[in-house]
Design a protein around this nucleic acid. Structure first.
Lengths: 158, 158
DNA sequence: CATTGCGTTCAATGCAAATTGAATCTACCA
DNA sequence: TGGTAGATTCAATTTGCATTGAACGCAATG
């Protein structure tokens, strides 16, 4: 029995879709997770396709993304060649990985950028104001890196 | 003199545009902030329009958004009817407000949703599994709220 | 009070990213 | 080994949102 018949679940699926869209993961990703989250039994790609009215390609790609984030688990149902999926409810871990994707990489990218920039504004043609701004940027990057690496943050997201 | 002539600044403007686009604030918003950040003097809407090759409407709307986030300040130049803007460099504060917009509101919205949902699955027609899932969701929401309200987080983002 | 020079608005547009689905690939079974 | 059922891929399409710019509003100035 599909939980999608329940109005509360419908609404949750819609909201989850909005959320993941805003966060840059696409709407379907959140919808799939929400459906799985409220499904007592594991679901196949075809289930998702039918119940959410999406294409098979979309189902496949988004489920893969959720798997990468650790938000979803593949389960085998014996005697059935299809892949089935169920939702993990370790929200903390899922969110941490999602943030890692969005924030973590960028903090490091900023660090690299500043290094490169430093090299090109050092020397005679270096603009004093730009150097000053880069310094503030570097200070911030270090703080951000520190914050991100802080074990306290990891604990709090548990 | 426009800092946009400097390759490092050009590159930074491009990157900042990508970042804000991914974060859902639009490309121009980041570009404007980046340009202002590396501008020694305050800049007018027309400056932004010319140097970033954007429309006046875009400049107006995005600057407004940055102002709301506290990322940018309006300054008056006497004898000039135009509005001038300069970048704040309190990154911590800016990011906190951005997060408030993206995360904070949603944590509260989730809380409200759960309350509503609770009411509609209580009683005879309530599905046991859905109730169980809602319970886990509520537990998470409380933790998230606590994390978000934690003064430590605020301090670390300073 | 008319004019001038700004800022703002919003319907129309353009564009980038999400989504589709036919073609392709893979694993399994007879 | 061929056949089948499902998963995956990616070029083409759709869709939604950022961006544009003409029209409007408004405040200052002579």
């Amino acid at each position: 029995m599909s939980p999608i018949e329940h109005p509360v679940v419908r609404r949750f699926i819609e909201d989850a879709g909005h959320l993941t869209q805003v966060l840059g993961f696409g709407r379907v990703t959140g919808q799939i997770y929400a459906l799985l989250y409220f499904s007592a039994e594991a679901r196949s790609l075809d289930d998702l396709k039918r119940e959410l009215a999406i294409s098979k390609g979309s189902a496949s790609m988004c489920v893969r993304q959720l798997e990468t984030l650790g938000a979803v688990q593949r389960v085998w149902v014996k005697g059935d060649r299809r892949d089935y999926y169920q939702a993990n409810d370790y929200f903390g871990q899922i969110i941490r990985r999602g943030l890692q994707e969005i924030v973590g990489h960028r903090v490091e990218a900023l660090g690299q950028f500043i290094e490169e920039a430093d090299r090109s504004v050092t020397g005679a043609d270096g603009d004093a104001f730009i150097r000053q701004r880069l310094d503030r940027l570097r200070a911030f990057q270090k703080k951000a890196q520190k914050f991100w690496d802080n074990p306290l943050v990891k604990v709090m997201l548990k």
